[in-house]
């Protein structure tokens, strides 16, 4: 038996919006600790790692570890049937379920709807991600990061990110011309609009702008985003999901051919 309830379906809707364009399907690994999803996009360039801890749920029960193979477009269709303020309960009866139920309850309890979704067998390898001490860790407003990725995507396919003690710079160029956005470190680190940089050594890396734009679908989840970078290894883009977990995106860099 698996059962997990969230007071408001809005969080789950936002989480799904943050992954459904990058992934077609994924295994939801449910344990006593919570729900984890790890999956690569079809081209094996980026990876999504989602964690929702059990203590962040209003109610959570997982008698046996189970893996639910989910078609994310199907789950998104079902989640769209809920109102943001609805309480949502995810329920699977068996230890090896072939279907999962979503129950939505309005705040006044006057409307209760349930949707059953068929699960899939997904044969996906789990990747081992080594612990890394990154050369630069940048925290910045998530809306600013989204704006930069969207604006610069108009100019070129590749985005160069350079980070030094002075600040972080995003650059691109293409047929139209070139573009640069520089952000300086701010003095007040506690505010939502703060830009903070922890640097061991400066880095310059190139990434496909298209994937960065996919990652920014997580913007509604958190006011801040964290970028962790070291030369010649994948970029880590991290959004917190309140106090209950986080969504991490990894993106392989581009190198000069």
């Amino acid at each position: 038996m698996f059962e997990a309830s969230l007071a408001q379906s809005a969080i789950l809707k936002k989480v799904l919006d943050a992954i459904k364009d990058l992934l077609n399907e994924a295994n939801f690994e449910c344990t006593d600790d919570g729900i984890k999803v790890q999956a690569m996009d079809n081209s094996h360039v980026s990876l999504v790692s989602l964690e929702l801890r059990s203590d962040g749920f209003e109610k959570y029960r997982c008698d046996r570890n189970l893996s639910m193979g989910v078609n994310l477009a199907s789950m998104a269709k079902i989640m769209r049937c809920s109102s943001n303020s609805d309480k949502v309960t995810i329920k699977a009866q068996d230890d090896n379920p072939d279907k999962v139920s979503f129950i939505f309850e309005s705040s006044n309890q006057e409307r209760i709807s349930d949707y059953e979704m068929k699960l899939m067998d997904i044969d996906a390898d789990q990747l081992g991600i080594p612990d890394t001490e990154y050369s630069c860790v940048v925290k910045m407003p998530s809306a600013e990061f989204a704006r930069i990725c969207k604006d610069l995507n108009q100019f070129g396919e590749s985005l160069v990110i350079s980070c030094s003690k002075e600040g972080i710079k995003f650059s691109t160029s293409g047929d139209l011309g070139s573009a640069n956005v520089k952000l300086a470190q701010t003095t007040d680190a506690d505010k939502d609009d703060a830009v903070t940089i922890e640097m061991r050594s400066p880095v310059t890396l190139t990434f496909a702008c298209r994937y960065l734009n996919h990652f920014t679908k997580a913007t509604p989840l958190s006011s801040q985003v964290q970028l962790s970078m070291s030369d010649e290894i994948p970029l880590l883009v991290e959004y917190r999901i309140g106090d209950m977990g986080c969504i991490k995106y990894y993106l392989a860099p581009k190198i000069d051919d």
């Binding site: 690569m40 081209s43 094996h44 360039v45 980026s46 990876l47 390898d125 789990q126 990747l127 081992g128 991600i129 080594p130 590749s158 190139t206 496909a208 290894i233 994948p234 990894y250 392989a252 860099p253 581009k254 190198i255 000069d256 051919d257």
Partner: peptide, 14 residues
């Protein structure tokens, strides 16, 4: 011209 690397170059497969 730049070459897009794959994640499998960096992460090990279980």
């Amino acid at each position: 011209n730049s070459l897009q690397l794959e994640l499998l170059t960096f992460f090990c497969q279980h």
